Amino acid sequence: MAAEAVPREQVGSGAERVTAFVDGVVAIALTLLILPLMESVGEVAGAGDDALTWLGDHTGQLLSFVLSFVLIAMFWMIHHRLFADVERVTSSFMWLLAGWLLTIVWLPVATAIAGRMDDDDGVARTLYIGSLVLAALASLFVRLFLRAHPALHRAPRGAVLEGLALDLSLVILFGAALLLALAIPALGYWSMLVMLLSAPAQRLIGRMIGARS
């Protein structure tokens, strides 16, 4: 008697094309970060001002560009290490990935808003840091899905728990930065300095959930 067919949703398909697609979307998001700065160069040049004037007038945009570039690159590196062990993807998993990509593609918009608005603009600050919270949450949901579906990957249990500790630490610290920015508006984006605690936070959470040191 022929073996019973396994539903395609349970079997999944190869992860190579999905990995390439995600890498391409992240590369586009990184490129989009520079567009507001490119536009401002044209505006300054058209007004007859020099490069020093441009640097002085767009310090906030430059800082937000560098910060967002580093953060998106960090999210991509986390995703890259995660996908190194993924062998199959299902439609449910791809929808979760699409949700994560949505947060990444949105970050250039949040960056442009943060760079152009005043430092005391609470809405701009909330949009920016809140977007980072959502990106970290989406990454956590992707990893939790993989933990619940071990047939899709070959990652050992210890590596999965280490990844969970990393994602949880980012969610908690970005959330803490957002709460600090809301509670103490004078801090502004300096509340993001709590991210310097990411390594000890990851180790602490790792011990709490049983990940190896």
Rank of each mutant, 00 (worst) to 15 (best):
A165N: 04
L161V: 05
F65D: 08
T59N: 12
F174V: 14
E87L: 06
E87H: 13
L63C: 04
L101T: 03
F174W: 06
S139G: 09
W100H: 11
A181Y: 02
I72Q: 14
A84S: 10
A148G: 05
A159S: 14
Y128W: 12
G130C: 05
V70S: 04
D57E: 15
F75Y: 12
L166T: 05
A183T: 14
H79F: 10
G175R: 05
T103Y: 10
D167R: 06
R147N: 12
V109F: 11
H58D: 01
T111F: 07
L101G: 05
V66N: 01
W95F: 14
L97H: 11
A112Q: 06
H58Y: 06
L187A: 07
M94Q: 06
R88T: 07
R81V: 10
I172H: 11
S91E: 07
D121S: 09
V70F: 08
L179M: 05
G188Q: 08
A124R: 00
R116M: 01
V89S: 11
Y128I: 03
L180R: 06
V86I: 05
L96Y: 15
I129M: 13
F69Q: 04
L137K: 10
V133H: 08
D85S: 15
L67T: 03
L107S: 01
Y128R: 02
L140S: 14
S68W: 01
G163M: 00
L180V: 04
A165Q: 10
F93W: 09
W76T: 13
P150Y: 07
A183E: 08
T103E: 09
F83E: 01
W106Q: 11
L132V: 02
L146E: 14
R143L: 10
M117G: 04
Y128A: 02
M117D: 13
G99F: 08
G115L: 03
L152G: 02
W95K: 13
R81W: 12
A183R: 07
E87P: 07
D121Y: 02
A136C: 09
A110K: 04
A155R: 14
R116H: 10
W76Q: 15
A183S: 14
W95N: 14
D121C: 05
W95H: 09
L63R: 04
A112Y: 00
T103S: 14
A138H: 07
P108E: 01
L146N: 12
R125I: 09
L187D: 01
F141C: 06
L161H: 12
T90F: 03
D85Q: 13
L52T: 13
L164K: 11
L182C: 03
A177Q: 05
L166C: 08
M77V: 12
S169F: 07
A136N: 04
M74K: 15
A124F: 02
T53H: 15
D167H: 10
A148Q: 15
V105L: 03
R154H: 04
L187M: 04
Y128E: 12
V123Y: 13
V86W: 00
L187R: 00
L146M: 07
L173Q: 10
M117A: 12
F93H: 15
M77T: 11
D120A: 09
L134W: 11
F174K: 09
A135Y: 07
I78S: 15
V142T: 11
L107N: 08
M117R: 15
L152R: 04
G115I: 12
P156A: 08
L62Q: 01
S91V: 13
A136T: 12
F69S: 01
T126E: 02
T103W: 04
T59D: 06
